[in-house]
């Protein structure tokens, strides 16, 4: 049972001129196995910074506070070690990697995360089943990673990886953005399949309330000015839907 614990997390990013700017200003968050947490917030509130800081993107510097997974210090881990420890980040803007096929990439990643190479036949069977479930054409396996994928294809491909890599905690960074209703439903079903596995936790970062109709969260956190300013159950998302973020922005008293 792995719990992701974030305590008083401060994160800075270096701008183009090299000056350091603080984006996260003391985030506290606990995602236990079996729970789904939604983080909602306006643009520029630091939601994606939180996602990247958890994954260990080198652009983001943790200046104080802690991130632990099952009690293990995550901040000191390399990017790949975090993934092998059980963290997964579905990216808002998945990166195109020329010349690396989806199939080869997935097999390499599965091998790295499991610590041993899966049997090729088993792997192909699992991959094809996972692709079918996400309505991904089988020709995708031979295409280059994210190259020429539409926005919806990229997001479905992120969820394909989620299902193949079986992490303990999945951070989904605006996986719903830019999806039409059909794609949103397919992606949500994939997230729900992942959630139905025992002991898996989800941190769902979103700008919109729409996905929460398909992926029902246990907890909702409102993120403004680089920290959590309000917390509640699923009903909080509905409040945000009708009232917007203004009240929280004003209460937080911070620039966004």
């Amino acid at each position: 049972m792995a719990t992701l614990e974030i305590r008083d997390l401060h994160v800075s990013v270096a701008d183009a001129a090299g000056a350091s700017r603080e984006i996260l200003r003391g985030v506290d968050l606990t995602v236990a196995a079996g729970q789904t947490h939604a983080i909602m917030g306006p643009n520029g509130s630091g939601k994606s910074t939180l996602a990247y800081a958890i994954a260990g993107h080198p652009k983001y510097q943790v200046t104080s506070g802690s991130i632990t997974l099952g009690g293990e210090d995550v901040v000191s881990m390399s990017v790949d070690a975090r993934a092998r420890a059980g963290l997964f980040l579905a990216m808002q803007y998945p990166v195109e990697v020329p010349g690396v096929s989806v199939s080869n990439f997935l097999r390499t990643a599965v091998t790295a995360v499991r610590g041993e190479a899966p049997k090729l036949r088993t792997f192909l069977k699992d991959m094809n089943a996972a692709m079918d479930a996400l309505a991904i054409d089988s020709a995708f396996a031979q295409r280059n990673l994210n190259e020429g994928f539409s926005g919806g294809e990229k997001k479905r491909h992120e969820i394909l990886q989620l299902e193949m890599l079986e992490p303990k905690i999945a951070v989904l960074d605006e996986t719903d953005s830019g999806l039409d209703v059909d794609a949103l439903r397919i992606v949500s079903e994939g997230i729900n399949r992942f959630r139905s596995r025992p002991d898996s936790g989800v941190l769902l970062i979103t700008h919109y309330q729409r996905i929460l109709r398909y992926v029902r969260p246990d907890f909702v956190h409102v993120f403004v000015g680089g920290r959590v300013v309000a917390e509640g159950g699923p009903e909080l998302a509905e409040t945000l839907e009708s009232e917007g973020y203004e009240r929280f922005i004003a209460a937080a008293g911070v620039p966004v």
Partner: peptide
Amino acid sequence: FYLMSRGIPLAEARRLAIRGFF
């Protein structure tokens, strides 16, 4: 970063990217 975020160690990620380049 993308490759490593899926658990692939740096040296292997570099090899994948170089193979991809060619």
